[in-house]
Write a protein that binds this DNA or RNA. Structure first.
Length: 218
DNA sequence: CGTTTTTGACCGGCGC
DNA sequence: GCGCCGGTCAAAAACG
């Protein structure tokens, strides 16, 4: 991206989330004893537990570049913002979202394109192990198909089927040549002048308006 | 009351 | 070895 290859960095944490399920493992800290300073994090009891062996493979990452508003690009899932940080290269801060669904390790990074303020760059990590939280979540089926399509075109050989294997982890221990991360970039170049968010309702996303660019972790 | 958002601090990795 | 950067967590506050 705009900086060094931070793939490895994120990759470890991603596994941790999938493996530790997050909250469950973090509780370890409390168990250790009375901590007068809860603000301090115990890396050893939290992240370190991730995967001692697996660290080469990674789930496919989907980068969706849209010209719509951040709020409009919701894929139909419920996201909870867990952080915001200003990254170099972009005057705009980057927002970090996480799927609030039970056991869903999917994360989403949303940032405005430094080049086009009207365009936003959304990075999806992981796949949803559940269906869209239909009921009250939303009344309009937004860009759900968009993400699905993006994932579908992922050239990644082993893409864990979320619907069949939720906890499935494609460990390629011996496969050093395995595609660490299949990155798909979906650029939605729709006319901002129209002010329409049609791309969300368009089933055939990967056609003219959207371009899927499989990028192997360089 | 429950859930989500916001801000600050800390951690881990990488580069120099 | 030190510094920088990105990323995540955690607590409190705000809103529905």
């Amino acid at each position: 991206m705009e900086h060094k290859s931070g793939n490895e960095t994120t990759e470890q944490q991603l596994f941790c989330s999938s493996d530790c399920e997050g909250d469950a493992a973090i509780k370890t800290e409390e168990d250790l004893g009375d901590e007068p300073d809860p603000k301090r994090r115990l890396s050893e009891s939290t992240m370190q537990y991730s995967s001692p062996v697996i660290k080469t493979f990674r789930e496919p990452r989907v980068v969706v570049q849209s010209a719509s508003d951040i709020g409009r690009v919701s894929d139909g899932y419920r996201w909870r913002k867990y952080g915001q940080k200003t990254v170099k290269g972009n005057p705009n801060p980057r927002s970090y979202y996480r799927c609030t669904y039970n056991g869903c390790p999917v994360r989403k990074h949303v940032e405005r394109a430094s080049d086009d303020e009207k365009s936003i760059l959304i990075s999806y990590e992981g796949k949803h192990n559940h269906d869209l939280p239909g009921p009250k979540n939303n009344s309009d089926p937004p860009a759900s198909p968009l993400i699905s399509s993006a994932m579908a075109v992922t050239p990644g050989e082993q893409i864990p089927s979320s619907q069949s294997l939720p906890e499935q982890k494609p460990l390629e221990l011996g496969g050093e040549k395995a595609p660490e991360s299949a990155l798909v970039v979906v650029s939605i170049g729709h006319n901002s002048s129209t002010g329409e968010d049609r791309e969300c309702l368009n089933p055939p996303l990967l056609n003219e308006n959207s371009a899927a660019v499989p990028v192997e972790n360089a």
